[in-house]
Design a protein around this nucleic acid. Sequence first.
DNA 1: TGAAAACATTTGTTTAAACGAATATCTTCA
DNA 2: TGAAGATATTCGTTTAAACAAATGTTTTCA
Lengths: 149, 149
Amino acid sequence: MKIEELIKQTKFVSPLQKAILNLIYTYHWHVDQAAVLFKPFGITMQQFNVLRILRGKHPEFVPVGDVKAVMLDKNPDLTRLCDRLQEKGWIERETNSCNRRQVLLRIAKPGLELLEKMEPLLQQQAAEMNHLSAEEAELLSDLLDKLRG
Amino acid sequence: MKIEELIKQTKFVSPLQKAILNLIYTYHWHVDQAAVLFKPFGITMQQFNVLRILRGKHPEFVPVGDVKAVMLDKNPDLTRLCDRLQEKGWIERETNSCNRRQVLLRIAKPGLELLEKMEPLLQQQAAEMNHLSAEEAELLSDLLDKLRG
DNA sequence: TGAAAACATTTGTTTAAACGAATATCTTCA
DNA sequence: TGAAGATATTCGTTTAAACAAATGTTTTCA
């Protein structure tokens, strides 16, 4: 359904504003969809995001700051987010002996297993809502890049 | 800057996944930008969104449920959001005498004035980041519509 | 009519987000 | 060397989000 119908608004200040409203709407739509999938695993999107970043570096340890730098949203409280990940046994944490200011993170085995368990469900969800061709998806991504300037 | 560089990831499961990561990233980018603008006025994006919806119907009263239906994100706690708007004097609230279950909302004069004061700043911000042509913005919006199916 | 179902919003409670200030460590350079 | 500044993370506190259950009202239909 088009954004005009969804938010019952036909006039927009500009095409750009319409696109941004659609961006916000579509983001929340995606979050709502993903939440259904994430909930049974007791994990939030942000936590999942951090686990995936750590998996990308496994078996290396990664400083908290490096994780923060590449997160999709810059959670200002990564400390307590990591507390929760550690409590669940999904990550390991230790201070860097070379630079004792830094805290190093590494995904633990249960964390890797969790991601593996979730992956097929995510794939399936993506497949079910595959309304864009590969070219269109690339184009969408390019336009978002361009929007940010 | 392209999303690949921003999140330091070159391989993606699919173009769709890349587009969705970009959607999430760009949404947060936008929220961060808007927050700077909104903060001096003591208003959040959600609250602003509600005020704009009410302005679209002014001087009519609108049921809370109707507002919820067209919100960009379906805040489950519109009651307390409206409490805050009312405390600041931006909206009026009364129960519908024809259907006493419903609560009706209307934007108040200070609310209208607030929006008028903020509008030029928003326009300016939009103008400054006008990296998309009108056609590109339309295309972006269409692709987002299509993504949702 | 009047009991059950549907509806619209509110409230209670747990949990997490937001923000600034604080702590601890390292680097620089007079 | 050692004081000032920069860096990396953590903590304290206020505020809001999330979710389920509850309240009050209207509609339906036996």
